[in-house]
Amino acid sequence: MPRSRLREPAHQVSPRARLMWALSGAAESLVLLVVQVLWWFIDEDGSRTPHLVVGVIWLLLTAVYLVVMPQWRYRVHRWEATPSAVYTQTGWIAQERRIAPISRIQTVDLARGPVSQLFRLATVTVTTASAAGPLKIHGLDVEDARRLIDELTAATVAEPGDAT
């Protein structure tokens, strides 16, 4: 049997996505810091050593997380749209590739959260008739996202039927 491999999708997302991921990652680890601060005030015992140990571990992990995660995500996150299909690759530690034929697309949707607005980014979501497989492209430049949506919408209208 010939080896069949998929190549990566053609386009990377916007480089600013790294900043966005770093910022949301920082927000996540801040939640952990809040828990620690609470622990600091609730704990009545004299010894502060456990707090300091946990604090140092937090600092190290956060630093590694904020440096590694956005870079890794940026290298993984890719997308491609051809006249007949959409192809995405997402994740970092766990990765996922999704393919959907244009003919099976039901909705195309652009979303901008507060953080992505800050970096002029957008998330494009492509849904099919299956509840299992919406394709999401995070961290697209807003202009690129708009163009992609227009192209996909035009292509979808041209195709009849959605296999329900």
Binding site: L6, I93, A94, Q95, E96, R97, R98, I99, A100, P101, R104, T128, A129, S130, A131, A132, G133, L135, D162, A163, T164
Partner: peptide, 28 residues
């Protein structure tokens, strides 16, 4: 009506994947 190829870190090392066929019917 579509495909997903999911690989965790260990699955990539082992050369395995969950290959998911999506459909509009049944369990989706």
């Amino acid at each position: 009506i579509g495909w997903k190829i999911e690989q965790s870190f260990f699955q990539r090392r082992a050369g395995l994947a969950h290959v998911v066929a999506t459909t509009a019917a049944g369990k989706q």
